[in-house]
Nucleic acid binder design. Structure first.
Length: 205
DNA sequence: CATACATGCGGGTAGATG
DNA sequence: CATCTACCCGCATGTATG
């Protein structure tokens, strides 16, 4: 994953980070303040120690969203929003699907909802395992963290750590699962559970 | 309207570090 | 003691859904 603004001097914790970006200057000329020359396209799966600068009108950036299951964490700093990774829901038997894929569901952000997810039967019909959370330990043994900071002309993002677990299913399918109570499927896997997933792509609906 | 959940806020605690 | 990080918890709001 490229980090177009990774050569900048700014850090999310700096007292002064670049405030003027791109056309926000109103000059029409490339902005060179602190080396920031472009806005990045939203990175759904940002990983590693990366930094991005998003457009303030980016819906994804405004929602501080991520493909990873990130939960808000209190850093007692009203200027910087911090989130930490919840890891991924996996089968405690680490079963392998016919197509060679594994179970890697999206943990609920809500603590209560996440507790309910655990110990549920593995959605793989051919498996008798249970779901469990594989915690993220990608940042010195602790969960990977994301930091978000808004300025008048940009949304600054910074990540710390490398995820040491599979990507959870994307939000869209996680939401689809909540709705449909169609769990176990004939193929041995939940249909709505795996929509938009690589597993789903190997199954025929 | 009730329920479930995503998301943000912030009080408070605990351990590590300087 | 100050600071930082991780984390627990409740509260509030917004959205989707039955």
């Amino acid at each position: 994953m490229h980090d177009h603004n990774n050569t900048l001097e700014w850090d999310i914790n700096d007292n002064h980070i670049p405030k003027r970006l791109g056309t926000a200057l109103g000059t029409g000329s490339p902005n060179t303040v602190s080396g920031v020359t472009t806005h990045d396209a939203f990175q759904e799966w940002a990983d590693g120690h990366s930094r991005f600068v998003y457009r303030p009108d980016s819906e994804e950036a405004r929602r501080h969203s991520s493909g990873w299951a990130m939960r808000n964490t209190n850093n007692h700093n009203v200027h910087i929003l911090k989130k930490s990774c919840l890891g991924v829901l996996v089968c405690n038997k680490h079963c392998i699907l016919d197509n060679g894929d594994t179970i890697h569901l999206r943990p609920a952000i809500c603590d209560k909802a996440r507790k309910k997810q655990q110990h549920k039967a593995c959605p793989n019909h051919k498996c008798t395992g249970r779901l469990e959370v594989q915690p993220c330990r990608g940042h010195c043994g602790y969960p990977v963290t994301h930091f978000w900071r808004h300025t008048e002309f940009a949304v600054f993002f910074q990540a710390k750590g490398n995820h040491d677990h599979p990507r959870p299913e994307p939000k869209s399918s996680a939401e689809a699962r909540r709705v449909g109570h169609s769990y176990k499927f004939s193929r041995g896997i939940t249909r709505s559970l795996l929509l938009n997933n690589s597993i789903a792509s190997s199954l025929q609906f």
